[in-house]
Amino acid sequence: MTSKVRQAILPISRFKRYFTPSHNSIICTKTLKTYIEAETEVSNVHLTPEISLHLVTPNTPTWYSDGKDSKLFEPFYAFYWPGGQGLSRFILDNSDLIKNKNVLDIGSGCGASSIASIMSKASFVTANDINREAMVILDMNCKLNFIDSDAIKKVTSNLINAHTEYFPYDIVLIGDMFYDESIAKELIGWMDKLSKEGKEIYLGDPQRNDILSSLDGRLSIKATYNLPENVRKENNGLMTTKVWKFE
């Protein structure tokens, strides 16, 4: 199913309907939740064990599939990507940076960095992911961690390149978004504008490519984490993940 077809089906977003590949049909939130529960397990085996997450792991059959039989369509949100792991670890360990701040989590995925921000007492958190299924799993993950899901504002329109004037956020979190060169290019231009407006930008990334090295002079390294063995298996060839501040 091409993304164009997907987009054609999805504008009924107001009714909270989701697309599944294997059923070739549109399902409601409740059904999506049962699918997510069936295809994931609750895991704490990652860099932030204090946050429980519904994840596709080596204990779930979906892990070994090529994704075609999965009831979930490209479930990027059901993996805890290394960049997000490092960023969430950093947020939990440096809560003074986040406390009482207004935080925007770009490409929030499973929502770990948003949850970590709430745990670090951010005054307001917005999770942004163009994948609407991600917002459902975020809701489920909030419940697992006894966090009121309404405490996190959920936005599914693309906020990359949003106007930086009257931008209400103090901190922008960007976890593992540089895997795609076209997104990366857009992000870099936007980050430049944001920093001119005095926003704090934190990047978490395992350096899958050379893109970040082009920003050398503007990144100050904040933390380096070794990836746990299961996370390395999820990301062949990667051993560490890093957190930088963009200035």
């Binding site: 070994y64 993996f79 899958r208």
Partner: peptide, 16 residues
Amino acid sequence: PRYATLPNIMKAKKKP
């Protein structure tokens, strides 16, 4: 050789 698992297949789609 290792098998290519779903998380790796998904991210590989974006490699040039």
